[in-house]
Simulated assay, not measured.
Amino acid sequence: MALMDLPQAKWGGGTGRQVILKSDFAKIEEALVESFQVKGNLSLRYAGPHQVEVNATGDCKARVMLCGFPSPVHRGLWVDGGGLTDGRYRVNAAPETLDWEVSGHLWGREKSNQWYCVYALAGPTETLFSLKAMPVMRVSSQTAQTITLRNNANSADIGYGFRTDELANARILMLTGASRGVVRPITANNSDNGTGGTISYGGSPLTVATGDWFVVLPNTNFRYLGMVFNDEASNLVPFLQEGNSFSYLTPRTLASGALNGFTPIDLGLVAPPTAKILQGYGAAQGGAEVKLAISHDGTAPALIVHGAPPSGTFRGVQGALPFSCQIPNGHVVYLDNGNSPHQRVNIWGWTE
């Protein structure tokens, strides 16, 4: 493939005029055509409670440009962490599997109720890519540019069991909060596997608050492929992915029962911090009306769902109405149902 061939190694040596052959022009022409595929992302496939897969065949190859991580600030643009990745093309002609039970397939130890970022990786001379999962992390606190880590539920501190300093020379990319979109070099990490995980970084201090999300950009050639969720039983939640659109095979509950006024609801266990659009439905039981108001700031409703119940139940509910809404920077939405009982809010997917 032509993008894999560019830039030509011979162009990097010497000074002055360079010889360009007819075959070089052919590669450049092919690269221009192939470049239109760069925005199209590979789709992950759920392959079991501990596996995801990128499918490929000799006729339908998995082509990916290792250009980094999607910008949390500008949709459609990419962040390479300051030159960590070479931005070159890799192509697999056979399925590639990532297994949470195989040593070396994860950074750190496996954690439950945890989002994992799936990366395609390749060495500088490798033409094929492999897969590896990085836990997505939250801030608990910061002292002298050392971040203490918080679990994804934002309920307690956590350690991920990384090898000491294995993340050194990688990068932090803040996904939410006041420093969203800011990258910093990692200088150290500890090996705590309990409740005292820390990551230290260089450069100027980040402005962070408890619950802010960030991801580690690995110190190798990489590209983000998608997010998967490891549930409370340490099983991957079944999902479907098509490009930047994700959906659960079984919806996950965001809230249930009466909510008296706009109540902040953390999205940490139903949608990853890369999600831009949240998709779900409000449901009612016991003959109650479906009532749901969603606010981005807790003051005014951005969306209202309200409907009278039908005469009977179906699939365990007596009335349900769908919604989709943008996700604010803080990864929190405010919900209200007028203190009405028998209500439930389920999430079936998200768009990045």
Rank of each mutant, 00 (worst) to 15 (best):
M4G: 10
L321W: 06
T176G: 10
G257Q: 04
G194M: 09
L335C: 01
I347K: 01
D266A: 13
S23T: 14
T351S: 12
R90E: 06
L254T: 03
G338H: 07
S130C: 06
L240D: 06
H296F: 09
I186F: 08
R180Y: 06
Q18I: 14
G268I: 04
Y248I: 08
V216Y: 00
L278K: 07
S191V: 05
L173W: 05
L98I: 03
S155F: 04
F214C: 04
S245I: 09
D336P: 02
L42N: 01
L21Q: 12
A209C: 10
S256D: 10
E29H: 08
M1I: 09
P7H: 10
E101F: 02
N113P: 01
S140Y: 12
V290Y: 07
N55S: 13
A293Q: 15
L44F: 09
C325F: 02
T125R: 14
T198F: 01
H74L: 14
T195Y: 13
L44R: 06
E166T: 10
I186Y: 06
G87V: 08
P328R: 12
A188K: 06
N190F: 02
H306A: 15
S324D: 11
R45N: 11
L292C: 13
R223P: 00
Q114M: 11
P264W: 08
P251H: 06
G261S: 12
G330K: 07
V183W: 01
T85G: 08
L225P: 02
M137N: 03
D157E: 14
M174I: 11
A308F: 08
L254V: 07
L303E: 03
N346F: 01
I294L: 10
R150W: 11
G316A: 12
A300G: 10
